[in-house]
Amino acid sequence: MLYLTLVLAFIASIVLTPIVKRLAFRIGAVDRPNYRKVHARIMPRLGGLAIFGSFVIGYFILRPEESISNAVEPAFIPISTAILIGALIITVTGVLDDMYEITAKAKMLGQFLAAAIVVVGGGLEISFINLPFGGELDFGYFSIPLTIIWIIGITNAINLIDGLDGLAAGVSTIALTTLAIMAFIMGDPFVMSLAAILAASSIGFLYYNFHPAKIFMGDTGALFLGFMISVLALMGFKNITVVALIIPVIMLGVPISDTFFAIVRRVREKQSISAADKSHLHHCLLNIGFSHRQTVLIIYGIAALFGLAALLFSQATLWGGILLISVMLIAIELFVEVVGLAGKNYRPLINLVKLIGK
């Protein structure tokens, strides 16, 4: 039944996206080019509405049941209901932003409400972690704020990488596929089903969103995907060891690292953390000579490597995991240095990378 549901979710996304495209033009949910944008013509956004609709269709066709491991106490409503309500709130927030470009505070309010529904209403929270060398770290009163910060942080991280055709949708699909595989390994059919349905919906949307894009997902899609990924990652790895808690961080390595470097960059330059710029990873790769399509595919590859590393990390011993993290940190630093050198007109380096890519 799951395979049939995935096919139907994919088809639903294929069918709904052109309808949403026409709706976007009709209601004025369009993205106009400016100095910070890569595209040069008016583009319809709101595409995330097609992803959301396809996901809802797939969910109600399959109706995945929560297992005992998904049940959390105390909860006012079932976690599945909380997720759907939170997803609706975050999607409405995105739709309003795509239509009217609401303020950052209004968007943050929508994100907070969506997260609070899942955390307070559904009871999903990181209440404690078991330390690797014995003992337990209980977050106490900080568990709810920390969980809400996680959800809002990942939601915005996905939103920040939505700068090129197909980038956010593709990276999200890779993260969701990794989540589905991980949930399958851990014997969690509920998380596996939701992640797989959402991945199928995103792939259908990518048919129209990959370069050259016919429609953008807009904040509707970026916020919805970020919210769902953050919640599903929490459901799979709550109340466990420090080592296991690192798995979703590795899995979401691309958006998290890009967001981290953006914050460091803006603090160093004494700018607002929410200020927009053209120094994200995809901008840097474009600036050093890669084409639009090549840049997106390179970041896809990096995201896939992070996903593979997360899978390996989940099966590794403690010291093996520490070694893997060390290698990854070194690799990230080397990559940052390579991009920095290339940005200073080290053209032979870029030509070599392009040659390898062929």
Rank of each mutant, 00 (worst) to 15 (best):
M1S: 13
Y3A: 15
L4K: 13
L6W: 07
V7A: 15
L8S: 09
A9R: 03
F10W: 04
A12D: 04
R22S: 13
A24E: 04
V30C: 13
R36H: 08
H39F: 12
I42E: 15
M43K: 11
P44N: 08
R45I: 09
G47P: 10
G48Y: 10
F55I: 03
I61G: 02
I61M: 14
R63D: 11
E66P: 06
I68C: 08
N70C: 05
V72R: 04
P74M: 04
T91D: 02
G94F: 05
M99K: 15
I102H: 07
T103N: 14
T103M: 14
T103A: 11
K105C: 09
K107I: 09
M108F: 13
M108G: 11
M108L: 15
L109A: 14
A114V: 02
G122F: 00
L124N: 04
S127R: 10
I129K: 00
N130L: 14
L131T: 12
L131S: 06
P132C: 10
F133Q: 09
G135H: 07
Y141E: 12
F142T: 13
S143D: 08
I151Q: 06
I154F: 05
I154E: 02
T155D: 01
N156V: 06
A157P: 01
I158S: 08
N159Q: 00
N159P: 02
L160M: 12
I161M: 03
L167A: 00
L167Q: 00
L167P: 05
T173R: 07
L176E: 04
T177S: 14
T177M: 12
A180W: 01
A180Y: 08
A183T: 09
F184P: 06
M186S: 14
M186I: 14
M192P: 05
S202W: 10
F210V: 13
K214G: 12
M217V: 10
G221M: 06
L225S: 07
M228A: 11
I229Y: 00
L234M: 13
F237N: 05
F237R: 11
K238D: 02
V243Y: 12
A244T: 12
L245I: 10
P248C: 13
V249E: 12
V249C: 10
L252Q: 07
G253A: 01
G253M: 02
G253R: 02
V254Q: 00
I256K: 03
V264R: 10
V264E: 11
S272V: 07
S274D: 14
A276T: 11
D277N: 09
H280Q: 09
H280T: 07
R293T: 14
A303V: 02
L305V: 12
F306W: 07
L311A: 12
L312P: 09
F313I: 08
Q315P: 01
Q315S: 11
L318G: 10
I322Y: 10
V327W: 01
F335S: 08
V339Q: 02
N351P: 04
N351Y: 14
K354E: 08
